[in-house]
């Protein structure tokens, strides 16, 4: 999995590509834990993510919690069909911002 970060002041875009499986979720969790200080505007670009299971969902939820705590804003963009299915099924799409 590729993780590319693009920061502009308080705004951070994390571009993800590949399989967001359990092992990759651990790597992403470390990134999230270490990169969100001072960030109040977070975007996950999911364009290259082919699938996500519960380990990946938990990291996305962790990021959402951190943004909520910081009074910030978070969104997922370019979500593919399989990931969208999972977000719908688990109810994540009810409380997360998902944009084109």
């Amino acid at each position: 999995m590729e993780i590319k970060k693009e920061q502009n002041g308080n705004a951070l875009t994390v571009h993800l590509a590949g399989r967001l499986a359990a092992k990759e979720a651990k790597t992403l969790e470390q990134e999230v834990q270490s990169s969100l200080t001072g960030i109040t505007d977070l975007t996950f670009d999911m364009a290259g993510v082919t699938y996500v299971a519960s380990a990946g969902l938990r990291v996305i939820l962790l990021a959402q919690d951190m943004m909520d705590e910081a009074g910030g804003d978070m969104r997922l963009v370019h979500v593919g069909p399989v990931v969208m299915d999972v977000l719908n099924l688990t109810g994540f799409s009810d409380f997360m911002k998902i944009e084109d």
């Binding site: 499986a21 359990a22 082919t50 699938y51 996500v52 299971a53 380990a55 399989v82 299915d85 999972v86």
Partner: peptide
Amino acid sequence: AKLDILVEE
């Protein structure tokens, strides 16, 4: 991809 999710879980 769905099967991948199942196997992973």
